[in-house]
Nucleic acid binder design. Structure first.
Lengths: 203, 203, 203, 203
DNA sequence: CATGAATGAGATTTCATTCAT
DNA sequence: AATGAATGAAATCTCATTCAT
């Protein structure tokens, strides 16, 4: 069935990617064999290899997909017009995370991605870019607060961006491993922390 | 009738574990073959298998080692007498993390551990316990602040513990992947965030 | 009811054969995939398979082409009227060989053909016929020498034909592997050997 | 069964090489799968790969073995004291060739080796060395004839060496493909050619 | 206690060929 | 006549683990 539409090719690629993601989540990336992917996708070895030229490419494609729209969503949140208080911002962000962490959700691959990044330069570069991007969005948020006069001008917005970013992976981990945190709880935790008195007790 | 001392056995076990850790960090856990471990440790296959009965056992033993003393260190910090302000506490905790993330540092295995926990119940249980433990220590810290009258009695110390815990993995990730955060910067970021004004802008 | 001319078909067949030869020479017959041939010829899989029904057929067609005109050329040389001395005959034959051994020359496939003949009956038969044919031409040459009174009547012209034939493959191999023989040198070598004194030293 | 003698290891290597040679000759090098070699050698995959780290290495080892002692034998022949006439020398050399071309004889791999040399630099280098070596021995033979006063001092011994060498591959090919030449016939052919009259008919 | 040769299932990937369009 | 997506068997090689010595 040759001379097939672009759309058909795109559908096939997604079919393979989805099948792979299901396998990766179910058994883990390394425990997933190509045979598993063939079976799950309903395609033959040759067909899969026509669209992706190695298992690595499938892994990378899947991981790229993971975090892309998370950042896009977050950017919209930060740039939205009524400037949101940090606890609400965090809660909404966390809610998005939760919605992507369901049984088949791509965020279940996050720990595997972090792990792979330690030795696969390709993935390392992608993850580093992603971290940097989300951090910069946090930084922009902080700057808006400063500009609005809600924070002193000398606030270190870059450092704050890095700190705020740091909360996200820890929330994901807790969702995936202990399963006992909710976005709402994260918000309450954040509210508790936003107090100058937490800093002034050196006396 | 053991011919060799307990101490000898313990030394061998550590020798194997260290060799394995070096390999795991250098090539990744999955890319490390038992042959690699034999070579790095200078022991034969038979010898290694006398002390650990599978590769999995070596992995688990290594991962258990990773986070054990991190928690112990943190507990001491929290329970120390002059109650530390949160930014300083975090900076010190982060410094410890940094000292364990050097070229051969066990914390480089953290992402691999998180990833494995998604499919290895053994490791999942261990990691969950560890998370819970550290979180409880954070909660205890928050309670001390409340008890000292620095925070209102209605503060949700449990939620705050979960939020504070969340910062740690994100800091580790940034250290390992973007390499552009310092404990001191994390502290500054924390200082910026501890302000009631971050919550009151809904208007 | 063929819509296209015979000539068109023939052109297509040659197009495929030439593309295949280029690939075979460049990468070796076994390392050449059908995909390589599709790409080099600019035709699709279906098109190529319309003209040749297997890779083997393409190989065989190519190998048949290799040695066909070599023999025709040699026959003309031997039957030409001023009977040529053996050294000149050999030099001219060798020159032809050289002209067919250039970068894209079909003779570069000769070793592959010899090798395949060891296990492919089709090719074995073809090569055996070819060897026999060239040998017989050499025999005819020797007979002409005898008839001309230049050699004694009891000369074993068949054995001499086999011996003369034997020189050719060795020359080809040296051209292809050590690249340090010329037709002219082969001629000089032959001149040196054509001396009765080479046989009479038993004493 | 560890800590095994050198001799044991050597025996294993030969066992594998011999099994491979049998397969290569029976089915051809490319048609021989590693499974074939495992079965023929009676060893497991792992065992074979302990001794040779790839199929290529097995092929190369086998090909190196092919021609080594042929040259050694020939050198002894040439350096033997009663200087042999060329036809006898050739007959004896050819006899050796025949003895190495039996059903399991390593020389059956010669065409495959020539073919591989066209694309495997390793093998190409080996074959080129071998050709050069044998040629030099022929050259030495010719020089001895000159020194003995049997040939004129201006004889081009190098060219003659190249020409004499050339006969060998053609003899091998005829043995393997048409099977209708004997060393004795080659000798008779050579006797017929060693005549000055073969060169003087230009008139 | 220690050795290291041997096992063999299983992993990824390639490739000649077909056939619906 | 021509296309090229799809097939799926088969190939090479790896690796955790065992056990005779």
């Amino acid at each position: 069935m040759p001379r097939v539409s672009e759309e058909h090719l795109e559908r096939r690629r997604r079919q393979i990617l989805d099948a792979a993601r299901v396998c990766f989540i179910r058994k883990g990336i390394h425990a997933t064999s190509m045979q598993d992917i063939f079976a799950e996708s309903g395609l033959s070895a040759g067909a899969v290899y026509r669209y992706y030229k190695s298992k690595n490419e499938i892994i990378e494609a899947n991981i790229s997909t993971v975090v892309g729209d998370l950042h896009a969503f977050f950017r919209r949140l930060v740039d939205s017009d009524p400037l949101l208080p940090v606890d609400e911002l965090i809660e909404r962000f966390a809610s998005k995370v939760v919605s992507l962490s369901g049984p088949d959700g791509p965020l279940r691959l996050a720990p595997a991605a972090w792990s792979l990044a330690m030795h696969e330069p390709e993935i390392a570069a992608y993850m580093a870019d992603n971290i940097t991007g989300i951090r910069e969005t946090w930084t922009r948020y902080m700057r808006r607060l400063v500009d609005a006069g809600l924070l002193p001008p000398e606030t270190d917005v870059v450092a704050a961006g890095k700190t705020l970013f740091a909360i996200l992976p820890g929330f994901v981990l807790q969702r995936l491993l202990t399963k006992d945190v909710s976005p709402e709880e994260l918000r309450r935790g954040m509210r508790a922390l936003c107090r100058e008195s937490m800093l002034t007790l050196t006396a």
